[in-house]
Design a protein around this nucleic acid. Structure first.
Lengths: 280, 280
DNA sequence: GCGGAAATCTCAATTATTGGGATTTTTGTC
DNA sequence: GACAAAAATCCCAATAATTGAGATTTCCGC
């Protein structure tokens, strides 16, 4: 679809090399990886460095640079979901021995945008910025269950095995039924789908157009739940309410945007939501 | 010096439009601001959007996108100063009723890379990613005092009025003297330079090459200091020690880099430090 | 200070970017 | 649901900017 040309995209291709398991690249490595010629690559690197997106480590090559940090600050400021959700996230974390996350739905990806943690050594850590797959876990389903059919279908068929394995359903229709139930209930629960022994409890956050744009989630050790004499349903109800509160405040904001000089990003109507963040 | 051409730079010029007081831009506004033609601009916007650096708000134009968030996550992972300093920052915040910051020195800018706060409504808030000027405040001087002469000179002459106003010195030589004292003492203190009534106490963090790459800082209300019966020197001593500890752990890391698969960004030897982050 | 590697420069060829204007898609309104 | 205005995209020839081979300079470790 996208013609994949343009020197801009070749610039960004360099940034795309930097991943969680590879945070440093030497020019030589980039050259062989992307096949750019030497002068060209160095020109690109220079541009990226001047812009602050890369910074050179003395003998080791390049890493991501300070401009990224600066921009993230601006993003935090411009995202009402973060602004509004922060309090709820922290409230949940202090109420239960858990880590609680606010995860935004960006087209094809889930991205944690805020998190808090009230236990010493969390086994599954999802700090801001860490992407998560759109096919596993409570968060995933909280979102998925509330998408319009049109969008559910391709995702489900694309990850049918996953759903079967989890026990959500083995046919598309089965899965849809399960999702319908989740939608009605207002929250989703997952047992050890991401981390063994950890329960995930998530509820959707809606924009004023009834579309799910994020999910609020609490992850808590199964043992901790028992130790505290808590029922999953009880926690879930709190998560749901908190998510509803966030949705409500978001809607309020949109009707009276003076409070916040911004609005929820939502892309082309086609996708009903933002459709970007491709890595390839 | 930089020839300021290249379509890459014109792409980044669009990102540079987004600032703290202007988080949304419509294509029209960008066109008139940067003077790009319509098809070109839309092409650029598309590239930026596909890369996830921008996202379109339905009727309102564009904002910064999720890719920024994702990249910041990677930066946090790759920056040992953050990784190591986090604990010290939080320890200071919990010891005093203050906000404590870890600020990195990026060539011409100071950028907060981590902060913690232990008071309800901090009057001067410096969360991660917010840049600060290189000519005012305790942080500034903690860094400046420990730079090699070569680098001090231009900065001092460039902001002589500021220094005079603060009372650091009215001639370059005076300022240098003051800085020498600060260097010897190991920390710097500023009274209400950034926010009236708030004291800033900062100490430098060094990389293994003896160059200041960051500063640890505690900002505390003058009244709070008194109320707690604390002396500035006492707090300062703790800040200094914490900063020394960070420097020490950093040096350790560099000698045995196996613990952390990364190292401190430090640019061309010319500048002894990272020299980028230009906005223009 | 020397030698090898890394980064930058020069400049002509060429390719990919540009932009005027038509066209299509989207959005808001009736 | 349909209409008009605005927004975004498409088309394609002209052209200006990017590209890359190789020479040259700078950097870095010894």
């Amino acid at each position: 679809m996208s013609v994949s040309s343009g020197s801009g995209e070749r610039l960004f291709a360099i940034l795309d090399l930097f991943t969680e398991d590879r945070l440093e690249w030497t020019p030589q490595e980039i050259m062989t990886e992307l096949g750019y010629t030497r002068p060209t690559l160095y020109r690109y690197l220079r541009t990226l460095k001047d812009a602050g997106f890369l910074t050179s480590l003395p003998g080791r090559g390049f890493t991501l640079g300070p401009r990224v940090v600066e921009l993230d600050f601006l993003v935090r400021r411009s995202d009402p979901v973060v602004e509004i959700g922060r309090d709820q996230v922290e409230a949940l974390a202090s109420r239960y021995p858990c880590s609680s996350l606010l995860v935004r739905y960006y087209g094809k990806k889930l991205l944690c945008v805020h998190s808090a943690c009230s236990i010493p050594d969390p086994r599954s850590s999802y700090p801001r910025g860490r992407p998560m797959p759109l096919a596993r876990g409570a968060i995933s389903r909280a979102i998925l269950a509330n998408l319009p059919r049109r969008q559910q279908k391709p995702i489900i068929t694309g990850a049918l095995e996953d759903f079967a394995e989890i026990g959500i359903g083995s046919s598309v229709e089965d899965v849809l039924d399960s999702l319908r139930a989740i939608r009605r209930r207002g929250y989703s629960i997952a047992h050890g789908e991401v981390t063994p022994g950890v329960v995930g409890i998530a509820a959707p956050v809606f924009d004023s157009g009834r579309l799910p744009i994020a999910a609020l989630c609490v992850t808590i050790e199964e043992t901790a739940l028992k130790a505290q004499g808590l029922s999953e349903a009880e926690v879930a109800e709190n998560v749901r309410e908190a998510a509803v509160e966030i949705s409500f405040e978001l809607a309020e904001l949109q009707h009276d945007p003076t409070e916040f000089n911004d609005r929820i990003p939502a892309d082309d109507r086609k996708n009903s939501l933002i459709a970007q963040g491709e890595n390839t």
